[in-house]
């Protein structure tokens, strides 16, 4: 596989085409998921079917992009400033609702999945 700058462009082209097709599918089907998430599923299918080598441009470019995923959220995070004024009177219910619900959701998902994974593991052990 080609390396160097061309590889980044090839990898980015793969990602953009998947996003474009995913976005088009969402628009056509009026589906309640974001286009890039459908694009993620499409790329996963392609990767499972074609099983590219570890140095394939789409793999190296994706790894590089994901290493700095946090950077991409900074503009949206700063954008929150625009709403500080409107929620000032409701900071307590919104803030407490958000934090409590975030913790409750985390615990509910974590404990549910952990219990189910353990039950499967012990079930299998007993069957053997």
């Amino acid at each position: 596989m080609s390396r160097g700058p061309a590889a980044v462009v090839t990898g980015l082209a793969w990602l953009l085409v998947c996003q474009l097709v995913g976005t088009a599918l969402v628009a056509a089907l009026d589906a309640p998921v974001p286009g890039p998430v459908v694009g993620m599923v499409l790329l996963l299918v392609v990767l499972r079917v074609r099983r590219p080598r570890d140095d394939h441009p789409v793999l190296t470019t994706s790894t590089g992009l994901l290493a700095h995923l946090q950077l991409l959220f900074v503009p949206a995070g700063v954008g929150i400033l625009a709403y500080v004024g409107t929620v000032r009177a409701d900071v307590l219910p919104l803030g407490a609702g958000l934090v409590v619900s975030w913790g409750a959701g985390l615990a509910a998902v974590g404990w549910t999945m952990q219990a189910l994974v353990r039950r499967r593991a012990t079930g299998r052990g007993a069957a053997r």
């Binding site: 980015l12 990602l15 953009l16 998947c18 996003q19 995913g22 974001p34 890039p36 998430v37 694009g39 993620m40 599923v41 499409l42 790329l43 996963l44 990767l47 789409v58 793999l59 470019t61 994706s62 790894t63 992009l65 994901l66 995923l69 991409l72």
Partner: peptide, 8 residues
């Protein structure tokens, strides 16, 4: 594109 890249 980064969301698509999560497939990797």
């Amino acid at each position: 594109p980064a969301t698509v890249a999560l497939a990797v």
